[in-house]
Design a protein around this nucleic acid. Structure first.
Lengths: 236, 236
DNA sequence: GCTCCCGCTTGACGATTATCAAGGCGGCGG
DNA sequence: CCGCCGCCTTGATAATCGTCAAGCGGGAGC
């Protein structure tokens, strides 16, 4: 299942959008020889909440969801990670255990980079550290924004907001030039991302549809008026 | 109002808990000569949301609240900053404008450090950069936690959680050895911190009091049973 | 002292959302 | 083809929470 995968870093299509674009050819060769690419099936996990952090993961293809749960059984989908995204780097930088579980949401290829390797690269190339700092800053801002949203927005607004974010990442234009989104996750997971019950999500989707903003069929979303959706978002 | 203040960095009582503990004496002397300490009255602001970031602020004494608002008029109290805390450093690191407004909540002394000064120190001392990275990591985790809480906890739980956090920072034992907390902020601001209406906060406080967990008189909180409060928190 | 103002509380009501329960629909294995 | 099992929807109900409105109480200023 996890054979060679032809996955050299040099050929990695998403390398230039990752932290690793800070590396020169020599360093990249080191990383290439030592990283561990692997193919995962949907439903498996990269690591569990509470596990030690032995290194970081870099998505080559597919999609993983980062989940968080507490003792009371509450759970949330913290974020989605697609090709080019680094996973678990904050636990690595903090030298602490993982605060969440990384779950494969669709067949994916993910590279694992051992702690020691990352450390070596960081010592060699200070620019890599700056990239990680940038990433952490973005994370902090994103969580700040989401906290603000979850406290001030209604479920409907959060749903529309999420749809727009997903459209940026997964949206396309169909043969008629209309904006279309193939949802990468189930409605339960949409609920977990937004912080609402699946029932409320179902009803919210129905409402959005009734108003003619978009049409939902299974995981396909056809937007009738993208601007109208954007207008309804409480501007941050 | 803003005279000399006798505020040298060497004498700063909170220096060892700030990022600046990474500096050696020589660097500290540089910082000391070039920083700008100033006393502020309650109600004034350090900077406004949208302002350019010309440098960072370091609290010497007092308390400032960081507020965020959107076009629709929603507002939130993002965080409280006490002595030793650095404010606005993320906007500095991101080289972007301020995302929030920093408002003086009680008479405070705050030092301003110009952008260029911070940059010089960062180039001189890489450890300072690591301190900032650590701080950013902590911020990210804190926002992640608060997002999780705001989505999964009820207002009552969030209130209890906030009370415990405030107790850690501002709590004391009174003459009878009982845990007491002098709230540093108004109930409106508690509401803004938690993401609830003032009325709901008032009622939640009443409920907590009725159950005998604590006694509220103005801004004084007397905890009858700290462990009972902790037990009621959904363990993260 | 008095008044005004502001923060806090309280009550009544309504909107939003969660919860519980039932049923439909589609995929998948037999 | 059938039946099972998730996922999704829908409905009914209740809890949570926000909003509107009124009143209370303390502090500042006159």
């Amino acid at each position: 299942m996890s054979g060679k995968l032809n996955a050299t870093c040099f050929g990695c299509q998403v390398r230039h959008s990752t932290e690793w674009c800070a590396l020169n050819d020599e360093e990249l060769a080191l990383l290439d020889g030592i990283k561990i690419p692997k193919a995962y099936e949907a439903g498996t996990t990269l690591f569990h909440q509470g596990d030690d952090c032995d290194g970081i993961y870099c998505m080559s293809s597919g999609l993983v969801g980062v989940r968080r749960l507490d003792a009371a059984g509450n759970s949330t989908l913290v974020r989605l990670c697609g090709p080019g995204e680094t996973i678990g780097y904050r636990s690595f930088l903090k030298k602490s255990g993982h605060r969440s579980t990384a779950e494969i949401m669709m067949p994916s290829v993910v590279c694992f980079i051992r702690r020691t390797t990352v450390r070596t690269l960081l010592e060699q190339n200070p620019n890599l550290g700056l990239r990680f700092l940038d990433h952490t800053l973005k994370d902090a801002e994103e969580f700040e924004d989401r906290h603000f949203e979850s406290v001030t927005f209604t479920v409907r607004s959060r749903l529309l907001s999420l749809l727009m974010v997903l459209y940026e990442r997964f949206g396309q234009l169909n043969e008629n030039g209309e904006p279309v989104l193939e949802l990468p996750i189930s409605r339960q997971d949409i609920a977990a991302l937004i912080g609402a019950s699946p029932e409320t999500i179902s009803r919210s989707i129905g409402a959005v549809q009734d108003e003619g903003l978009a049409q939902f069929r299974g995981r396909k979303v056809l937007f009738h008026n993208l601007d109208a959706v954007l207008q309804q978002l409480p501007a941050a």
